[in-house]
Nucleic acid binder design. Sequence first.
DNA 1: CCGCAAAGTAGAACACGCTCTAATCTCTGT
DNA 2: ACAGAGATTAGAGCGTGTTCTACTTTGCGG
Lengths: 219, 219
Amino acid sequence: MRSPHAVIEAATPVPEGAASVENHPTAATTPGARTRSQLQRRKRIVQAAAALASRGGVEAMQMRTVAERAGVALGTLYRYFPSKMDLVVAVVGEEIDLLESSIQRRPPSAPTASGRAVDVLMRATRGLMREPELADALLRSLIMTEVETPFGDRMARLLLRVAGEGLTVELATEDQLTLANSLASVWVHELLEMLRGLRTYEQIQQRLEIVSARLLMDF
Amino acid sequence: MRSPHAVIEAATPVPEGAASVENHPTAATTPGARTRSQLQRRKRIVQAAAALASRGGVEAMQMRTVAERAGVALGTLYRYFPSKMDLVVAVVGEEIDLLESSIQRRPPSAPTASGRAVDVLMRATRGLMREPELADALLRSLIMTEVETPFGDRMARLLLRVAGEGLTVELATEDQLTLANSLASVWVHELLEMLRGLRTYEQIQQRLEIVSARLLMDF
DNA sequence: CCGCAAAGTAGAACACGCTCTAATCTCTGT
DNA sequence: ACAGAGATTAGAGCGTGTTCTACTTTGCGG
């Protein structure tokens, strides 16, 4: 039932490990752990990609350019990231890691669950908007992608975590997950609107407060 | 032209805005109405595009093919729609027209505002899913596009209209608009998940009910 | 009817994601 | 130490969105 083109698949000479974005020579979680040099190569690629994307957006992040800049051949780039989208997803992954560790360092302190959630979202917003080109590129690409992306889910879990302080996500009900997920998708939508120049920070915050207050009412 | 799908059809020659800088024959908010033959040409193009997209998705809707099928030169096609995205937006516009008139013919009858909203959204969902390829294509494209698209807004207004029955949209508060808008964006998100094979109708309905109940609580 | 600007046409050409090939380099196991 | 497997490379090549060029047709004011 899925769309005709399975992004990952055509080129997977690797005896694949579990799913996830990374079943290629990619990093961790893969049983067939790869060599150090491969990990470094991968990192160099992602960095080059991020650097290019951060000024000029996806357009500037051309596969040939990324390859050149990372000092690998085009073929190798495609070996690590079978499509541009996979590369984008990887870049986004790093961004989220960043956000998560920032949250951990300095957790939101608002008194209500809703308030804490908005806090986190606004922090993420500001983080992303530091590189609007990149943010735009990444968001759009993510939404577009057929690649399985844990994005929404990761965000929802993060929200749940800060909403019910200390609440381990495992204890969350199905409904709670749904609500957190929805809040995340509203946020993404607002981000996109912002990137289109249709929202200011204040507006986003205001709108998120309205929505969050209702969605996370009884957390 | 055999058109196996009446995807678009009764379409009123309503102007829909694909805001663009230039003054293409694109009937954007058509004040400077064009000649009949131009309108027809435009319509033929959109129809050809819709027909192609409805089986095979955007991929099948190649500009060369659309042009050929509409019986115009590629240059002409680009004259009417400066980018593929603009064409997609036009096709989506027709779809929404269709939905709106369907709502008018048979308005939702649930007792609560939230129920009526879910009703409308599920009806739209089923409508879209009749042509999953097309839906997928259109949704993704819409989210991607830089082209100003009245999509979310139109949907929000539609929701407001059915939520507060008879409530003229003009009377809606800012907050209400925000909430309706958010509901629409959650819906879009769910649609995308469905297209990825991660949701069934039942799940979507269920989730929308949960979210809608909160967002439209006091309508 | 004329002239001319706008609209349309056919098709070449370009850009960029992606694929493929053939050769070389780098591990790893014995 | 060496053979074989796999990784890497340079670069050509393809498909499709988009642009460009050179030409023809259309419609309209005088």
